[in-house]
Amino acid sequence: MSDPLLSLRDVGRSFGALAAVDGVDLDVAAGTLHALIGPNGAGKTTLVNLIDGALKADRGQIRFAGRPIVHLPDHARARLGLARTYQITSIFPASSVRDNVLVAVVAASGRTWRMWRPMVRDTAACDRAMALLADVGLAEHAERPAGTLAHGQQRQLEIAMALAAAPRLLLLDEPMAGMGPEESADMVERLRDLKTRHTILLVEHDMDAVFALADVVTVLVSGRVLMTGAPDDVRTDEGVRQAYLGTGEDAA
């Protein structure tokens, strides 16, 4: 097997006395959808922040696409092909839906210093932005201020922005958080489609979604990896049941 796209060794981060992430080893193979689950406070979002560079790791090594990235700031990691969405939607609410994606496209192109031609006249970038919006079903809302979109649509918008850079790895932090059943079902379909083209690290509470989508599941408990394995193995593991899933299967 070839080297994993993303590889973490003994990664840790503490906040005061609390070891939020405590010596995590994790390998995400290219072309897979790798789910990261765990009870509240397990350190899942912290781990995502350590991977994308929003937080600095106290210890450990992170390799991405064959090179160490632990010393790089977040924006430099993004330029290497790491894209993410946030548990709490993070968009540019006052800008139009199209401009949100357009800014992401321009950022990915590296042409952020152009000072003369209006951004919206860059037809190649606009076409790409509209194509990305069409992919997530938001083309008809392109001119609306992004802040006026429904919650589920904002999450889809975030995915379009993350895809603008044609990333090598998508970090999706609870894309279904706060969604109703219908929006969740839409998002599952979106992810099913995305996983055919992208490597994804998915943090998610919705167990049905995780077991339906994931190729590999890592269970994080108290900042440590409890187990990594195929969805069926994780589902039936007694240790995982006790630590996380509780008595019933649908803890979510």
Binding site: H75, S95, V103
Partner: peptide, 18 residues
């Protein structure tokens, strides 16, 4: 536009690579 996007949401702008 990048400047304004950074005003609205700097964290998002950094995650986009700028």
């Amino acid at each position: 536009r990048i400047l304004q996007a950074g005003r609205q949401n700097e964290k998002r702008m950094r995650a986009l690579g700028v």
